[in-house]
Simulated scan of single mutants.
Amino acid sequence: MCAIADTGSVHKAARQLGMTQPSLTTQLRRIEQAVGGPLFNRERTGSRPTPLGRTVLTRARPIVAQMTELIREAKDAAGLGHADPGTRLRLASTGSRAVPGWLRRLHRRLPDTDITFQTDVSANTLLQMVADNQLDAAFVHEVEGAPLRVPDGIRLRVLVRREPQFVAVPATHPAARAGRAVAVAELAGEKWMVDPSVDGDWDGLRRVFAAARIDPRVVYGDYLSAGDLVAAGEVVTPCQPTSQPRPGMSIVPLAGDPLGVRLLVALRAGRRAGIEGDGVVEDLRASYEEVALGSPAYARWLAARRDPGLTVVA
């Protein structure tokens, strides 16, 4: 399940797992029969988790990580381990366009390190995995007004003090053609799509609506499918400022920047020596700056601010 969700394709997942596609499809059907419903929607562009699938994945990812760690520890205890623990780096993120550049920099600078990576929509889940020694570091976001649950034994490094959240609108929308930031009230008549499984997102958006004194229609879904619906003119949706527009969609700042997040790197207190020396945070900082300046709407927003301390990486 995790492999299909991460690759977006049963075919790619089978290749990653070293299985045939029919074998993986059969295994997936058995899992779906066990949990009582379909876990993925098979679309022309790939496989995407259903609401049930997202729920199961939230519980499955920690189990996979724990099992992987159990096997590694058992092999080490039996003298069968092949990798020095100092050459392993376990990373995760709630999802960001900065991640590919982060991993690219780490692989280039640490060619002998076994780097593993996973994603999860829940920042709180990833923080707990760091605390439980299932991860060495996690890149997460914290929505204003919706503080994360930080377990004991976690150290947080602030990557960005406040990142404004933008909105994705259809390219034909007046807000896209106006070439300016759009007020939330101007979008009161639109259907807003939000993913309620992302920690803090719905709470933050509700506060924005309340402050603007609007009560728009809200639909629930995942942000991957939201992009297709935005392009089709069905919804608008909050998005990261580093998001890249696709055909039929535009990324627009919100006037007054009413919705913001803090970007954090979670490290385990007392973690193995050298993780900071390895430059994990520094490589992420460089990658984030690269995608921020390469995102047209965000680059314009940054250029218009005289006080870079509002958004520049801390």
Rank of each mutant, 00 (worst) to 15 (best):
Arg155Thr: 09
Gly18Gln: 13
Leu310Lys: 09
Val313Ala: 15
Glu73Met: 03
Ile214Lys: 11
Leu103Ile: 15
Phe117Trp: 08
Gly279Val: 09
Trp301Arg: 12
Arg61Trp: 01
Val56Lys: 12
Gly279Ala: 09
Gly86Gln: 14
Val158Trp: 05
Leu156Val: 15
Leu229Glu: 08
Ala175Pro: 14
Glu142Ile: 12
Phe139Gly: 03
Leu52Trp: 12
Gln66Tyr: 02
Arg157Asp: 07
Gln66Gly: 10
Thr242Lys: 01
Val291Glu: 00
Thr87His: 15
Asp201Arg: 15
Ala232Thr: 10
Ala78Gly: 08
Cys239Ser: 07
Ala226Val: 07
Ile71Pro: 01
Ala14Cys: 10
Ala65Phe: 06
Leu39Gln: 04
Arg300Met: 00
Phe209Lys: 08
Gly95Met: 02
Gly145Thr: 14
Ala77Glu: 09
Arg207Tyr: 03
Leu80Phe: 08
Gly204Asp: 10
Val182Phe: 02
Pro151Gln: 11
Arg177Lys: 11
Leu156Gln: 10
Arg213Ile: 05
Leu135Glu: 03
Arg285Lys: 14
Gln21Ile: 10
Leu159Cys: 08
Met67Pro: 03
Arg42Ala: 13
Gly260Ser: 12
Val261His: 02
Val230Ser: 10
Leu293Arg: 13
Lys191Trp: 11
Ala168Trp: 02
Cys239Arg: 07
Val313Met: 13
Asp307Asn: 13
Leu110Ser: 11
Ala13Asn: 01
Thr172Met: 04
Leu187Met: 09
Arg149Cys: 00
Ala98Ser: 10
Gln118Pro: 00
Val184Ala: 14
Arg88Lys: 13
Ser225Ala: 04
Ala138Trp: 00
Gln16Ser: 10
Ser96Arg: 03
Leu91Gly: 06
Val35Asp: 07
Phe209Gly: 06
Ser122Glu: 04
Arg90Ile: 00
Arg105Trp: 00
Ala304Gly: 13
Val140Gly: 06
Gln134Thr: 10
Arg268Ser: 10
Thr116Arg: 15
Gly36Arg: 11
Met1Ala: 05
Asn133Arg: 15
Ala210His: 13
Gly274Val: 07
Pro85Gly: 04
Ala211Ile: 11
Ala188Asn: 12
Pro196Val: 08
Arg180Asp: 04
Arg109Phe: 05
Arg61Ala: 00
Arg306Ser: 14
Ala123Tyr: 12
Gly256Ile: 08
Asp136Ser: 02
Gly101Gln: 03
Gly46Asp: 01
Val158His: 11
Leu229Cys: 08
Gly309Cys: 01
Ala303Cys: 09
Val167Ala: 09
Ala303Ile: 12
Arg268Asp: 07
Ala211Gly: 13
Asn133Ala: 11
Pro308Trp: 04
Pro38Ser: 06
Gly309Val: 11
Arg213Cys: 06
Val235His: 05
Pro62Arg: 06
Glu142His: 15
Ala3Lys: 10
Gly101Pro: 02
Gly227Lys: 08
Arg207Thr: 08
Gln16Leu: 06
Ala34Met: 06
Asn133Ile: 02
Lys191Ala: 15
Pro174Gln: 07
Ala13Lys: 04
Glu190Asp: 10
Leu24Thr: 14
Val291Pro: 01
Gln33Glu: 01
Pro241Arg: 03
Pro49Trp: 07
Pro151Ile: 00
Ser9Gly: 04
